[in-house]
């Protein structure tokens, strides 16, 4: 079947989709957006967390056909999403967000790394706080943490823990992840 939906502000179309495919599979294998991760495919780890019409959900549990006509934000579009939010632009008009495979391949090393200036506050905080080790849980955590701070700019530690309780991390013991979310919230507070 064919599925049309918007990913990171850009209309996307996937053809020949098997009806049992998940949104996660379509993002990763058909649209060249492998940022959302396939750690458990049973809704237990949160590595595939994306925003579906604004709500954080596990992309592995959304049937591809259910995404028809809807808006999805993935980790690849998180920086742009945050920029628009900061600019007070609530609309989700087309935006050149996301990283196609071709774009990823064209990327060449440069001091400071790719897009060093373009990270969202929560992405930057994860880098700064040492919240990334293997990084497989990171995309899902970023989407969940960004949504938390959007909803609750000054979360308590218990709020952070609750909001991230659906995102498993096996490397960090979560301490640096909590640091990162606190850091992102504090920076947002200062900036605001």
């Amino acid at each position: 079947m064919r599925v049309n939906f918007t990913v990171n502000g850009r209309p996307q179309q996937a053809d020949d989709v098997w009806e049992g495919e998940s949104l996660l599979y379509v993002l990763r294998e058909r649209l060249g957006l492998p940022g959302s991760k396939n750690a458990c495919e049973q809704g237990e780890c949160g590595s595939c967390t994306v925003r579906l019409d604004g709500l954080p959900v596990c992309a592995c549990l959304v049937a591809a056909g259910q995404a028809e006509g809807r808006e999805v934000v993935t980790v690849e579009g998180l920086a742009e999403h945050a920029r628009r939010r900061a600019a007070g632009d609530g609309t989700t008009a087309r935006a050149p967000a996301g990283t196609s495979l071709d774009e990823a391949r064209r990327w060449t090393p440069a001091p400071g790394g790719p897009g060093a200036q373009a990270l969202s506050p929560v992405q930057q905080a994860f880098v700064d706080a040492g919240a990334v080790q293997c990084g497989f849980c990171t995309p899902g955590l970023l989407v969940a943490a960004d949504e938390l701070i959007e909803r609750n700019p000054e979360p308590s530690d218990a709020d952070i823990r609750e909001a991230l309780s659906g995102n498993l991390c096996r490397c960090t013991g979560y301490e640096t992840i909590l640091d990162a979310v606190r850091l992102a919230a504090a920076r947002a507070g200062e900036a605001g």
């Binding site: 957006l33 492998p34 940022g35 990283t99 790394g113 992405q123 880098v127 990084g135 995309p139």
Partner: peptide, 15 residues
Amino acid sequence: PRPDGTLKVTGEFAY
């Protein structure tokens, strides 16, 4: 900081 940190937070790091 990790040299792969930025790639890992943007989803570009290829597992």
